[in-house]
Design a binder for these strands. Structure first.
Lengths: 213, 213
DNA sequence: TTGCAAATGTGAATATTACTCACGTTCTGA
DNA sequence: TCAGAACGTGAGTAATATTCACATTTGCAA
């Protein structure tokens, strides 16, 4: 886990020169910065998050913040990167052993539910992925994540329909995945009852496409 | 058209007191401001658009800008409002006389194409609706627009399947519409070939849902 | 142990921008 | 013609992200 943070900070450093924490002390401080940022985003949204406030709550100076993050976006990006890494592992596990239509139906439905509940429960996630489109780096992260997740789906589809056109499958899986993210984001922005109906409708729509092409 | 602008400015004025242009002169100036903003957004994106630059290019003072727009977002909102008004009229017309499955297939496919091409060709529209999620007012405008458009679709569906559950139809139409916006936004953010495939896949998926429930 | 280079830590100072406001000008209607 | 409303102006204010010159700590080789 700590390695992941270091790797991320390193990546961010590439984009705009910033040091990656190598000492134990600084790694812990970076951890605190991210925790502070996460808390502030949960409270007020990433837009209202102030760098000074992040520093203060993390118990570090504003200068230290910029030692490891090139700018405000990089902090949000780092948090987003964690979520995608976690969820990718979860998705891969859920789809790993699917080998028939019924299994896909089950696994897919469950994944959508998990994703939906996650968004309902996690204000930070909601905030980060709401603003996704406005930030180029975040958009790219989301696209890459979506493609990666679509790949897991493609693997399943290839097992179910080995004679189908691979490009078609790729397109379908990618589209279905992105639609799912859009559907969930939509669902959480309306009242709960309608949100549930929308998610259910999405599942039907997606599964029909995945299974009955 | 000018009435619409006045109405819009008035609406914005409610949120944060700003005058609506009543004189011919000021109406023309507001027009210039919007045109300048539009050009700047096309060039650099709405995020990079500077209020001072908008004023300068419109040939007005920064104070005049704030006379009619309470803040930066209001300018973007005003542009967005125009697009939605225009497109709603277009959509209503396209779906007005649809009364059978084949007609829906035709009209829907055409609408999606138009929307796709519009996004490909209009950097301003692309930019505005990219950032949608980050801005509450814009998100609401988009939702309202989507619901309105879904209504047109519901009207058609009720004709095609009079015995279906109205709430179901509503949900389906709304979802299909939002998925369409997501699909097009996705399509323009990848290369053209993949974008075309994604849009085609979306059409299949949506029509299957609309016709064969 | 000691000394030094790299890593880390600091926060006042800077830069950039959205936005305000006090005051001058133009229009409209009676 | 004149009062008051609408309009126009741009220097000034406020809020923040970001920098930078300098202080401190750590890891390590002599």
């Amino acid at each position: 886990m700590e390695d992941k943070v270091a790797a991320k900070a390193e990546q961010a450093a590439i984009a705009s020169p910033r040091r990656a924490p190598t000492q134990q002390r600084s790694r812990e401080r970076v951890e605190r910065m991210l925790a502070a940022a996460s808390a502030l985003i949960a409270e007020q949204g990433s837009d209202a998050m102030r760098m000074g406030e992040v520093a203060e709550r993390a118990g570090v100076s504003i200068g230290s913040l910029y030692q490891f993050f090139p700018d405000k976006r990089a902090i949000v990006w780092a948090l987003a990167e964690r979520y995608t890494a976690e969820s990718q592992a979860c998705i891969a596990a859920a789809l790993k052993d699917v080998s028939d239509a019924e299994g896909l139906k089950q696994a897919f439905s469950e994944l959508v539910d998990i994703y939906y509940r996650l968004f309902l429960a996690e204000p930070v996630m909601r905030d980060i992925w709401s603003g996704t489109q406005a930030d180029k780096a975040l958009r790219e992260l989301e696209l890459a994540d979506s493609r990666a997740n679509a790949e897991f789906l493609v693997a399943v589809l290839k097992r179910l329909r080995p004679d189908a056109d691979p490009v078609e499958l790729e397109t379908t899986a990618f589209l279905v995945w992105q639609m799912g993210e859009a559907a969930v984001r939509l669902a959480i922005s309306v009242d709960r009852g309608e949100g549930d109906r929308l998610v259910a409708a999405y599942k039907r729509m997606a599964l029909r496409e995945l299974l009955a092409e």
